[in-house]
Every structure is written in structure tokens, then in C-alpha cells.
Design a protein around this nucleic acid. Structure first.
Length: 280
DNA sequence: ATAAACGCCTGACGGC
DNA sequence: TGCCGTCAGGCGTTTA
């Protein structure tokens, strides 16, 4: 499901309340259960549950596509990978019975006031970590796309340090944190760059254009609460603003040429072959 | 250094 | 209807 805008939407809901339920800030964890043990990357699932009980949620944040939940004595992290979702709901239904779990619910944290945080994950790719400091898990990530220290000259220097195709490089979380398949395709279209262009071939204006395009698509995505595409994530509206993603065979909004699908870095990739010419 | 191939998983969809 | 291949918002490991 999630790239940066979808994760940001979930984080805001966990922090302030929203479409994924009421906020969890300040709530105290009274129980933890794991229904698919491999969801817990670290520590071992039983220890994970034992150590969570009694903890209080102090803050909720995001680093790249990771959700950071800062507890009193530890940091809890979730990565939703392809199909994960977090929701907050009442533990009880209207009759006062414990509400049943949904298919693919993998981890549940119960709170003292009758609410629970549920991690649903059909494809079982998602992971949770409980560590002393979140940096152990997210320390290797590249800069945030909206970081103030990331400007066009620095971005050009980053691109020139590598000799790689633009799309896989942008999706490498150690290079830049938060971009996924959709937003990378959309950003490259806006910047009029072919996904196979080599990163060291960009000039200053192209690098500047690319950074601006990345920020524009991410901003629009966040404003739309993310994109709803398949059966997993719902609520966002950014899918209505796609220029190329999943528009294979449809007309380019700029020039009318048919959008093409190709494979770059083992990922389905969508381009306008006229607007995004490959010049190496 | 770069990139391909594959593994991890379930579910939706189109073709026959 | 059922079976099959293909595809899917991610990422780590192995291989070339």
C-alpha cells in the first residue's frame, strides 16, 4: 500500500485522530498479541509483547515509509511494505463483547481505555520492531524529500555520485527516503525525464526540475490523503490525479501520445514516450 | 558499482 | 464455473 503520502496520512491519523481511528497519543498499552510471529522483526515475538505492556505512547512520527511510535522506554516501528494497514478501534462492539478480528490482522496492542491498535497485513511483508532507539532501524535512510538541507545543488551532487538509472535510484531508500513506484513514475513524468536516464547525466536544471517534481507529487499526494488503488488502502483521492501510473494505453495529458508500460528495475513503469525521451 | 533474479505472501483480474 | 498466468503501493539477499 504505502509510500510517503499514505504513511504520512496514517501517522497524522494516529497522532490527531482521523480516518484510521482516534489518536493513540498518551494511551497506555495494557496488552499485546501477535498472530503472525514473523511480523516482529526484533525482538522475538514473546519478548516484544512482554516489553510493550505498561508502555505509554509519547509521540507518533514518520521517517521515510517507517512509522515511529516513541514510547516511554523504547521506540516501536512499523513498516507496512506492500499491503499493511494500521487502524485504531474500540475493543468492544455495541453489545459489550470483544469485537472480532478481521482477516489478516497480525498484531494488536490493547490500550487501557478500551481501544486497540491493529496491524493488518494480507501479504505478510510488513514488519514491526521494538528497539531502544529508532535510529537502529532508520539510521541508514537518505534525506527526507522535504528536508530544508536538500536543495538543488545538493541533489545534483547526490545524483552525480552515482551512475544509476534514475528510477531505481530514487526508489532506493538509502538515497532518498519515501519514494515508491507510483510517486516515482509521476515525478519523472512531471520532470520530463526517462526512468532509465543515468543519474550522472543530469545537468543542474534537470536536477532542480526533478527535485521540484518529487516535492509536487508528494505534496499533492498528502493533500489528497494518499492514493486508493487496490483492495487494501482506501480513503485517499490522489489516484484521480495520476498522469501516467496505471494509464497504459491512455492519452498523455500533455501531448496525447499513448502512455506506455515498461519494466525498469523489475518494477512496472509508466511513461509518455514523447514527453520523457531517453537521452544518455 | 550496478543491476538482474529471486524470495517472501495473498488476492484480484483477464483469458480460455 | 474453474484453472492458470500475471500483476500488485516493498525490500533484502544472492548472483552476474
Amino acid at each position: 500500500m504505502p509510500e510517503l503520502p499514505e504513511v504520512e496520512t496514517i501517522v497524522r491519523s494516529l497522532r490527531d485522530g482521523g480516518q484510521f481511528g482516534p489518536p493513540i497519543l498518551g494511551r497506555r498499552i495494557t496488552g499485546a498479541d501477535v498472530f503472525w510471529k514473523r511480523t516482529i522483526a526484533v525482538p522475538e515475538a514473546d519478548i516484544f509483547c512482554a516489553e510493550l505492556v505498561g508502555q505509554e505512547v509519547l509521540s507518533v512520527g514518520r521517517r521515510g515509509k517507517n512509522i515511529l511510535i516513541h514510547l516511554k522506554d523504547a521506540d516501536l516501528l512499523f513498516h507496512l511494505r506492500m499491503s499493511g494497514e494500521l487502524r485504531v478501534e474500540s475493543m468492544y462492539n455495541e453489545d459489550g463483547y470483544v469485537a472480532p478480528f478481521a482477516p489478516h490482522d497480525r498484531v494488536v496492542l490493547s490500550f487501557s481505555d478500551g481501544f486497540r491498535l491493529v496491524f493488518n497485513n494480507p501479504r505478510k511483508f510488513g514488519r514491526a520492531w521494538l528497539v531502544k532507539n529508532a535510529k537502529e532501524i532508520v539510521g541508514h535512510l537518505g534525506p527526507e524529500p522535504f528536508s530544508e538541507v536538500l536543495d538543488a545543488p545538493r541533489f545534483l551532487a547526490m545524483l552525480h555520485k552515482h551512475h544509476r538509472q534514475l528510477k531505481p535510484l530514487l526508489m532506493n531508500q538509502a538515497f532518498l527516503a519515501g519514494m515508491g513506484n507510483i510517486y516515482t513514475d509521476e515525478a519523472l513524468f512531471l520532470a520530463r525525464l526517462h526512468p532509465r536516464t543515468l543519474s550522472n547525466m543530469l545537468n543542474f536544471n534537470e536536477a532542480k526540475r526533478l527535485l521540484e517534481a518529487i516535492r509536487e507529487v508528494l505534496e499533492k499526494g498528502i493533500r489528497a490523503n494518499g492514493a486508493s488503488i487496490d483492495w487494501v488502502y482506501r480513503g485517499g483521492e490522489f489516484q484521480n490525479d495520476f498522469n501516467v501510473y496505471q494509464r497504459t494505453g491512455e492519452a498523455c495529458v500533455q501531448c496525447g501520445t499513448m502512455i506506455e508500460r515498461l519494466v525498469v528495475g523489475q518494477r512496472g513503469t509508466h511513461i509518455c514516450p514523447i514527453c520523457q525521451s531517453l537521452c544518455e
